[in-house]
Computed example of a mutant assay.
Amino acid sequence: MKQAGSIVVAAVLAVLAGGVAQAQEKENPKTNPLSVREIDDNDIMMKKTLWRRVDLNEKQNQAMFSKNNQITKYLIDAVKAGVLVAYPNDSVSTPMEIGKFAEKLAVPAQADVLTAEEKAAGFGDEAQKANDGWGDAPKDKKAAAKPVDDGWGTPSKAATAKPVDDGWGTPAPKKKATAKNTKGKKGAKPAPVVPEPPKVDSSAMAKAAPSPFTGNERLADEYSVLEIKEDWVFDRKRSRLYYDIQTVGIVIPADKNPSGLEQPVAYFKYKDLDKLFRSDPKKFIWYNSQNQAKHLNLADAFDLRLFWGRIYKVSNPKDRDLIGQYGSEREGLLKSYQIEQKLMEEEHGLWEY
Rank of each mutant, 00 (worst) to 15 (best):
S91P: 07
A206I: 12
V8I: 14
A177S: 12
E345G: 08
W286Y: 12
V265P: 02
Q22R: 02
G169T: 06
V148L: 13
D166L: 02
Q24R: 11
P163K: 09
D132A: 07
T160I: 14
A14N: 04
A266K: 01
A106V: 04
G124S: 05
D255M: 02
D41H: 12
P195G: 02
D77T: 07
G133I: 03
Q325D: 09
A209T: 14
E227N: 14
N291M: 05
K275Y: 09
A78T: 03
T72F: 03
K59E: 12
K342P: 02
D43N: 15
L16P: 01
A220T: 07
A14T: 11
E103K: 13
S315P: 05
S66E: 05
G169H: 07
T154G: 08
A121M: 13
T94M: 03
E345S: 12
V92P: 01
V200S: 04
S224H: 04
T154N: 14
S328V: 01
H348L: 11
E230Q: 04
N57T: 12
P190D: 06
A161P: 04
E227S: 11
A144R: 08
V225P: 01
L16T: 01
L261W: 07
K318R: 12
E27C: 06
V193L: 10
V225F: 02
D136I: 07
T182R: 08
A11G: 09
Q110C: 09
K174Q: 14
G153I: 00
V85K: 09
I250L: 04
W51S: 09
E227Q: 10
V113F: 08
Y270G: 01
E126L: 15
G249K: 00
Y353M: 13
N288Q: 03
K100A: 14
A204P: 00
A14Q: 05
